[in-house]
Design a protein around this nucleic acid. Structure first.
Lengths: 206, 206
DNA sequence: GTATTGAGATACATAGTTGTATTAGTGTGC
DNA sequence: GCACACTAATACAACTATGTATCTCAATAC
């Protein structure tokens, strides 16, 4: 096995990558405040030295973590929108996306942690809000497109409804995780789709 | 001002009360993990000795805090249900209740904190889930009554929809707090009521 | 090959947190 | 009024976290 000899930059990037991944794991597991810098570094297989030589602070790592996750999601949603699919295909793809992006990993925990952090730290809040607004805009655009295709009218401004959907999806995901017996995967999907259709389909046809 | 000389029990209850209140303040301000026992005791005007002589642990205080808040809300909702009001009055009262119970204080932050804690601590999760289920049941009952009165049908099981509404309300409250410019009080109320009506009124009349 | 650079380890000083063990002081029962 | 009981303060020992300063060694430049 000819292990590649890394250049200095490759090596540094790899370390950063591993620290970020370790941060995601630890913060999801123990929470932001309870995860020490040492925990994160150790989880990545390093010591604190590596951490401080790559990040200014825990918050610094955290916001980068969120940014990366956000970019992944944005990209996925944007591709879906740009693909010019039929409504049926779109809904199918969206369901798939939902399962993969929301249920397939623990990143929603990071976002919950982030919302709390935002309430307490004005600087952090600014950075988080920027990400949330971007996400809202993509979702609002999707909603607008959906209603245009369905020839239904929106019961409230698209941006506000987008926030509503974000709240709904994240919150239901929480119940689904922490009390799967009372809110199964199937129940989660069905209640989300019921509320979604009611809001964007039924209410606009009165 | 003849300050009453307190009996031992009264004095202890007062201390407990103050510690609980201080816990609510500190946990909302700094988060559960970042609030030390000393922080809480100091905020209440005591030292750690008072804390440990009244509670087993920080989690112990926290769960009691949640239980009290929960009981207040339960009581309020139950009274509303039992009052036998007309639909219009009910909606009016409910809006008032929402403003007072959700927007008038910071307890929703505690519940967000609790949900995260529940993901990490199985024992805590059991206790929290019990509270959440009780709340869900009251809301589910309300939803059922509402739809019966409106003669509409439910688009999904009442319990699941109740979880959905809880998710929605809490989540929107978050946006409303941390980005009031993008999600004003009025926008929050209007989007909530739009989704609510769409789900429980419009969708059932097809 | 040698000198240089810089990523990451280690050492250190400081500070904060926890829970218990002990002590002081105020209600309570006699 | 005196002994008791209990609440809350204080003292203490162990542990954990933070950030910086220093050191080591591998990658790069010459």
């Amino acid at each position: 096995m000819p292990r590649k000899r890394l250049t200095r930059e490759e090596s540094r990037d790899l370390t950063r990558q591993r620290l970020l991944e370790a941060g995601a794991v630890m913060i999801a597991k123990k929470g932001l405040a309870a995860s020490s810098v040492e925990d994160i570094a150790a989880q990545a297989g390093y010591t604190r030295g590596a951490f401080y030589s790559n990040f200014d602070s825990k918050n610094d790592l955290f916001i980068e973590l969120l940014k990366r996750d956000h970019e992944d999601i944005q990209q996925g949603l944007q591709q879906l929108l740009d693909a010019g699919l039929s409504i049926e295909d779109m809904q199918k793809q969206l369901a798939h996306f939902y399962i993969q992006a929301y249920c397939g990993n623990t990143s929603y925990v990071l976002w919950a942690e982030a919302r709390l952090q935002a309430l307490r730290d004005a600087k952090f809040r600014l950075r988080l809000n920027a990400l949330l607004l971007e996400k809202r805009n993509v979702i609002a655009y999707f909603i607008t497109q959906f209603c245009a295709l369905m020839k239904t009218t929106l019961p409230a401004p698209a941006g506000d409804l987008a926030f509503g959907m974000m709240a709904l999806f994240d919150g239901v995901r929480f119940f689904n995780t922490s009390m799967p017996h009372e809110m199964s995967d199937a129940a989660a999907q069905s209640v989300l789709s019921a509320i979604f259709s009611a809001t964007f389909f039924d209410s606009g046809r009165r």
